[in-house]
């Protein structure tokens, strides 16, 4: 009588396709890692306080500094969230692992990230002038 367990073995040692598909579906359905809230909040608040200290948009009256500050903070938050979404999409596209360690970012990733961040920076400057 043949060994029934040998029927489920594959030659390359990998699990059968049905189990691989089940694992892939489970990985796709698993929740994404949470955003780095503390770091994001720290950077956003530090930049917002710096913005308030630096001044306010010329379109606003000097008598309403709080409204001008809130306007600047809202613009900064919108651009920062958009940048985070773009970074998360790029990380998924490049399949950056959700693990710690290993090699660092490659040179194309650094160049693209730098160019994209400068683009978001210019976008924020343009939005703050309006």
């Amino acid at each position: 009588m043949p060994n029934i367990h040998s029927l489920f073995l594959v030659s390359d040692g990998r699990p059968p396709p049905r189990r691989r598909a089940r694992r892939a579906a489970a990985a796709a359905a698993s929740p994404r890692p949470p955003p780095p809230l503390a770091q994001f909040g720290l950077r956003y608040l530090a930049c917002s306080i710096g913005l308030i200290h630096s001044g306010w948009p010329a379109a606003y009256d000097a008598a309403a500094p709080v409204a001008a500050s809130l306007h600047s903070m809202a613009i900064l938050l919108a651009v920062a969230v958009a940048q985070y979404a773009a970074c998360a999409a790029a990380a998924r596209r490049w399949e950056l692992p959700d693990t710690v360690g290993g090699r660092g970012l490659t040179s194309p990733q650094l160049v693209l990230g730098l160019a994209g961040s400068v683009g978001f920076f210019l976008l924020a400057l343009a939005a703050l002038q309006r």
């Binding site: 994001f40 950056l96 730098l114």
Partner: peptide, 21 residues
């Protein structure tokens, strides 16, 4: 993680925003 590292790298640019203004 690597995605966090990439986001922090990109968001470092905001340090210079008040200075440029």
């Amino acid at each position: 993680t690597r995605p966090e590292q990439f986001f922090f790298f990109c968001s470092s640019v905001w340090i210079g925003l008040p200075m440029v203004l």
